[in-house]
């Protein structure tokens, strides 16, 4: 069995572009759930709107890359307002139901054949990265990082993706440690108490929803930019629940949590897959074939996550004291 290859693949995931995309979406969810207590089960929709906003603006409207980025951000911002204005006045559970339903509705709308000329229906959109990759200052060629090698464009999107992660994390770090962040945490604990102290709770919740949503839409753009394909099937509920897993793994009310949670999650997925593939090839797992490994690794990761939530509910970076109460 090729341990070196397994480790190289695992290390590759740590800086993977999909990892960066999921981490961005998880950072957005940390604002929603970890800091404000908003149960958003439709984070995939915010990411999808970033991706579709960008690709439609590029392909249909022929906008340059920066205008397309703004279109993606605006699309998810408007979506946050549309979701938030009717539901954020209601109890937290309603937002959960509405977000999960809206995310599904949006995905079906994107895959509907009626709008195929704009959205590409179930085939999605592709080849929308030209304007973006024309910015790439890295000379053409293969770049060897030791454990993996990549083309100049693959390297470029990784640098952009992880830079966005760093920028978003620093931004949120300062934001959540400000008095503004304190009000958000107060709302998470008891919004009536915060209201009685003279804070406009509704406005804070809307702001949190928009900020978390736009950060997730950056994640969506990074996600589709690496392969230059954007398909509606990407943005299903499993996308949302992977984000939740990453968030809970790292620690919900932290900034470092979603980042490390994302890296650990994808590294774990890749490691279990490559080790199990190796074992199957060696004939140690006669009840499995290679194709089944891809599915069973999710099962194993699910098991590990269950153990984590039971024995370390605060995640990797969460504060144990914060979870000792309210059992």
């Amino acid at each position: 069995m090729d341990w070196l290859n397994a480790l190289n693949l695992t290390a590759g995931e740590l800086i993977g572009v999909y990892t960066a995309a999921y981490v961005l979406a998880a950072l957005g969810l940390a604002v929603h759930f970890g800091f404000t207590g908003l149960l958003n089960f439709g984070q995939a929709a915010f990411a999808a709107l970033g991706a579709y906003g960008y690709s439609i603006a590029t392909l249909t409207l022929n906008w340059p890359w920066w205008a397309a980025v703004l279109a993606g951000l605006a699309a998810s911002g408007v979506f946050a307002l549309l979701l938030g204005i009717p539901t954020l006045r209601l109890r937290a559970d309603y937002l959960a139901i509405v977000t999960i339903a809206a995310a599904q509705a949006l995905r079906y709308a994107f895959s509907a054949s009626d709008y195929a000329s704009v959205t590409g229906a179930s085939n999605g959109l592709s080849e929308f990265g030209e304007s973006f990759y024309s910015l790439n200052p890295i000379p053409k060629g293969r770049y060897d990082l030791g454990f993996t090698s990549m083309s100049e464009n693959e390297l470029f999107i990784r640098i952009i993706g992880w830079s966005l992660v760093v920028i978003a994390a620093v931004f949120l770090f300062f934001l959540t440690r400000s008095p503004w962040g304190r009000v958000l945490k107060g709302i998470r604990e008891d919004e009536d108490a915060v209201r009685a102290l003279g804070k406009n709770v509704f406005a804070y919740k809307i702001q949190a929803l928009v900020i978390g949503g736009t950060i997730a839409s950056l994640g969506g753009m990074v996600f589709v930019m690496s392969s230059q394909t954007n398909q509606p099937s990407t943005w299903g509920t499993n996308f949302t629940f992977m984000i939740w897993t990453i968030l809970l793994l790292g620690g919900a009310a932290t900034i470092l949590g979603p980042i490390v949670g994302g890296m650990v999650f994808f590294a774990l997925l890749m490691f279990t897959q490559s080790v199990m593939e190796g074992l199957v090839k060696m004939g140690w797992l006669p009840f499995l074939d290679i194709a089944q490994v891809g599915q069973i690794r999710f099962l194993l990761v699910g098991l590990i996550l269950m153990l984590l939530v039971i024995f370390r509910p605060q995640g990797i970076f969460g504060n144990k004291k914060e979870l000792q109460f309210n059992g």
Binding site: R182, K185, G186, E189, D190, A193, K199, N326
Partner: peptide
């Protein structure tokens, strides 16, 4: 507010903190 410290609970009671505005923060 259970998972805020006592001092943060108190700070939340004040008015006119410019840092409580999104852009002010």
């Amino acid at each position: 507010l259970s998972l805020l410290t006592v001092i943060d609970n108190m700070r939340l009671g004040s008015q006119d903190q410019p840092g409580e505005g999104f852009f002010g923060s």
